[in-house]
Computed example of a mutant assay.
Amino acid sequence: MQLKINGVEIAAYPIDFQVTILDLDDADSTTRTADGTLNRDRVAVKRQIEMGFNPLPWADISAILQAMDAVFFDFYYPDPMAGAYVTKRMYVGNRPAAIPIVKGGVLWWDGLQITLTER
């Protein structure tokens, strides 16, 4: 598997990688009738990607987080629906990283979780 942010390979690869295909509906025109029938106005199909990482040395976690520092960025990944690698314009949500530990004189961060959502 290859993962790239703005054309550069990611500093460390996740142990968990999940692609969710999201349907976005128009809130005003998507309704249910009295008999429960859905009248749906799908306006877009987007991707959301969740990644979880093993403990990362400070340099690697910093490189990953800095690569996603812009408001939007290009993310290259294998897409299950496309059946190929694609590049999508994404933004990142919250990026929790659990407690840091020192091992061999190096600070390691455990439990980084990242959620990317297509613009």
Results as ranks from 00 to 15, higher is better:
T37V: 10
V86Q: 08
D23H: 13
L65E: 13
N94R: 12
D26F: 03
T33D: 15
L107G: 04
Q18T: 13
L56Y: 10
L38Y: 09
V92S: 12
D35K: 11
T31W: 12
V102G: 04
K103T: 07
A34F: 10
D35E: 15
A44W: 03
A34Q: 13
I114K: 07
D69T: 08
D60E: 15
Q48L: 02
T33L: 13
A70K: 14
G93H: 12
G83K: 08
D41P: 02
I114Y: 06
M90F: 08
M51G: 00
K46L: 14
V92H: 10
E50T: 12
I101H: 11
P14Y: 11
V43W: 11
W108V: 02
L22Y: 08
P96V: 01
G104M: 06
T33W: 04
L107A: 11
A67K: 08
E9Q: 10
V71E: 15
M68T: 08
E50L: 05
D79F: 00
A44S: 14
T31D: 12
T37K: 15
Y91E: 07
A34S: 09
N94M: 07
I21T: 14
D74A: 07
A63K: 13
L112C: 04
N54L: 08
Q48V: 00
D60C: 05
Y85R: 02
P57S: 00
G83V: 01
I5H: 05
D79L: 00
W109S: 06
Q18K: 13
Q66P: 01
Q66Y: 12
A70N: 12
I114T: 09
I99H: 15
V102K: 13
A97I: 09
I99C: 11
F72A: 07
I101E: 14
L22S: 02
G7R: 06
M68H: 10
L22N: 15
M51P: 05
M90E: 01
L56M: 03
M90Y: 02
